[in-house]
Design a protein around this nucleic acid. Structure first.
Lengths: 211, 211
DNA sequence: CGTATTTCTTAACTTAAGTGAACGGTTGTT
DNA sequence: AACAACCGTTCACTTAAGTTAAGAAATACG
């Protein structure tokens, strides 16, 4: 038990974690300014976690209170209907995900998995309630972040509704070219709302047009 | 000028407005409890507005700080690309809309119009900043509301991605049957991501299957 | 009340996505 | 090294949405 604690300390205090602490504080500083005491209070919550590629963070049917914030790596949300995976979102560096089931307090309708070795910030809603009431400026940040995410997601949704699969692929190529490299094609396809075969065909079509 | 003020008083203090005040307070009471003083402070902001069908609340290219909350009636957001209207959302009773351009402080990419005679709550972001700092519990409500809306919109987006136009129409028939009655078909069609002709065809197809 | 405009539907044809199957290429496992 | 599992691509065929056009129905307006 004592040995375990030691190893935990070593893990948590090594270089990559120190770097991630700064990455987080840089992000937060865009919204509010924290005192050293407040920073230490945040760190003492032990919210930084290394997660191996392939780890499933949430399964359909489970209750959860956990939110995730990707400091490094990539997580993905997907449904399984008729035995078929339908990927609906990817969250990469500096992107936050609070699963709807955490808000609605109902069983999750989807899965979350880690598709790269990642470093995530994992918080739970009880903790957030406490932090928000103790540090009102933290709640202000959460409010602003939610409002920003809501607006951003609205634009993504609108764009999805008003464009064809081919146009969506071209837009993705512009806006998140990294995703096309780091994510398997069949997951990208369902993210674009089509089948893997259609994505292959569509890419061939685009190449043809270029020449 | 004086006469105008009188007529304004008459408008704002008639029965329908009194009813709407209560509708709003009932809604708020699900999140926080307000004292009589706080209620009066809210009312003194003069945020209740009657809006005639057809009124355009926001145009592409405009800057705006206004958010809307429908107490009665329906508003709609739409883009115009290549001279064609693309409707992306409807907001009816007890639904709130903060246009993305208000958050990003950039010119609006879309239009908002009132498609029924409506009673709206119209707030602007300066006002909200002030109210939030004066009444912290109001900010708490905003945070919770944003988080809920984000989760709800995420589910809508996921559902849109993972279903066919026909399935989307059938889902809408279940979840918001009123929309199908109160909204013109061609606006519904683009809301479903298809052309009006396809919606007609799709409905005929469904009727055929039933028989 | 009658005309103009908008809205909805239908139809024929085009285009693109879904489906099922097959084929190489890669990865992972024993 | 051999095998299985998975992945991406291609092809032929099916299905559904886009496009263009025309006409009927409903609505708005003078």
């Amino acid at each position: 038990m004592f040995a375990l604690t030691i190893s935990w300390c070593n893990r948590k205090s090594n270089n990559i974690y120190k770097k991630m602490h700064n990455v987080l504080f840089d992000f937060i500083s865009k919204y509010i300014s924290l005192t050293e005491d407040e920073k230490n209070a945040l760190l003492s919550l032990d919210i930084f976690h290394s997660v191996k590629k392939g780890t499933i963070l949430l399964k359909e049917g489970q209750y959860s209170k956990e939110s995730y914030f990707a400091l490094k790596g990539c997580i993905r949300t997907y449904y399984i209907t008729d035995g078929e995976e339908k990927t609906t979102a990817f969250y990469t560096e500096m992107e936050a995900l609070t699963p709807p089931c955490v808000i609605s307090k109902t069983p999750s309708e989807y899965y979350i998995s880690c598709i790269e070795d990642s470093i995530l910030l994992v918080s739970n809603s009880d903790m957030e309630v406490e932090v928000n009431s103790k540090f009102p400026k933290f709640e202000t940040m959460c409010r602003i972040l939610s409002e920003e995410l809501l607006a951003k997601q609205r634009i993504d949704f609108d764009e999805f509704k008003t464009t064809s699969p081919e146009q969506r692929y071209l837009n993705l190529l512009q806006k998140r070219p990294d995703l096309i490299q780091r994510v398997p094609q069949h997951q990208l396809a369902s993210y674009l709302g089509i089948k893997p075969q259609s994505l292959s065909r569509l890419r061939a079509r685009i190449l043809e047009k270029k020449s």
